[in-house]
Each structure stands twice: as structure tokens, then as C-alpha cells.
């Protein structure tokens, strides 16, 4: 499916989406409370059939006080791909987990939790993945500081 058809299909599925500019593929922004239902429809709808979650990451927009969660989806059956973006508030970073839809999201969400401290509702095992278990703080947040880190001299 090409991008226009895909976007039209997504609009009928979920009218509240908006297109996100400056992306290398079709990217849509979904309100956070609609995310779970929208994602499971993407996986199950026959015309869409997004069966792979390639990547999941987050962006820390510290000036706007929000995290943007990015899901990159792809369909082996139809050969199209899609980026789904969700904004969540930075001071209460809670998002629904999609690990019941794609199993791989379990680890990807653990990594995002590890680096950004995003909490996922209904995640089966939300622990740190890459850093030590006793690590304090979330190092990919823009305001992260620790004793080891060296500041660039002005």
C-alpha cells in the first residue's frame, strides 16, 4: 500500500490521528489514550497487518516538557512501514504497554524504561535491561547528570 492509501485507511481506523512532518516514512501522531486500541487494530486489520515492531524509542523534548515515544512498524505481508508517535507528559511518563501485541516490545520497552524512565502500564517485567540494577537516574534524559560524566569546558 502506498502512503496516501495507507493514511486514508488509518484515518478511517482512528479519526484522531495527525500526520507528523519531517519523517523518512509515513508518520502519524496518536493521542496516548487511543494508543492501545490503535496498535492492536494495526496488527489485526487484514489490509494493514503490521506484524513487526522494528524499533521503539523515545525522544526527550525537554523544552516542551514531554517525551515522544516512537514505534516503527512494518508489514512483511504488504511491504509497507509506518511510524507511530505518541506524546506523554515528562513529569508523569506513563504509557500503555504494547507487549501483549508484539512480544519484542517487552525488551524494547525495558530499554526505553532503562534510558528514559518511561513507565509502561501492564508490562509483565519492567526492570532495567542494559544498565546495572542499582543505577540511579535515567541517562538519556537531557537533564541527566552524574559524578562520572565530564562537562565540556566552555
Amino acid at each position: 500500500m502506498d502512503n496516501e492509501k495507507l493514511l486514508a485507511a488509518l484515518k478511517t481506523l482512528e479519526p484522531q490521528i495527525s500526520v507528523r512532518e519531517n519523517a523518512d516514512r509515513l508518520a502519524v501522531t496518536v493521542p496516548c489514550e487511543r494508543l492501545g486500541a490503535f496498535m492492536s487494530k494495526l496488527k489485526l486489520e487484514n489490509a494493514l497487518r503490521f506484524d513487526i515492531l522494528y524499533a521503539h524509542t523515545a525522544i526527550d523534548w525537554v523544552a516542551e516538557n514531554r517525551f515522544e515515544l516512537i514505534y516503527i512498524l512494518s508489514s512483511l505481508e504488504h511491504g509497507h512501514s509506518l511510524m507511530v508517535c505518541v506524546s506523554i507528559p515528562r513529569d508523569a511518563p506513563v504509557a500503555p504497554s504494547v507487549s501483549s501485541i508484539w512480544r519484542i516490545a517487552e525488551w524494547q520497552e525495558r530499554e526505553v524504561y532503562d534510558m528514559f524512565g518511561v513507565l509502561y502500564r501492564d508490562h509483565p517485567d519492567l526492570r532495567r535491561l542494559l544498565l546495572e540494577d542499582d543505577w540511579q537516574g535515567f541517562p538519556l534524559r537531557k537533564d541527566y547528570k552524574d559524578d562520572f560524566m565530564l562537562e565540556k569546558p566552555q
Partner: peptide
């Protein structure tokens, strides 16, 4: 990675 890195050894 010498500046602003939380993990890389210098």
C-alpha cells in the same frame, strides 16, 4: 564520547 557520556571509559 569524552564529554557528556555516562558510560564510556576515558
Amino acid at each position: 564520547f569524552i564529554y557528556h557520556s555516562y558510560s564510556t571509559l576515558r
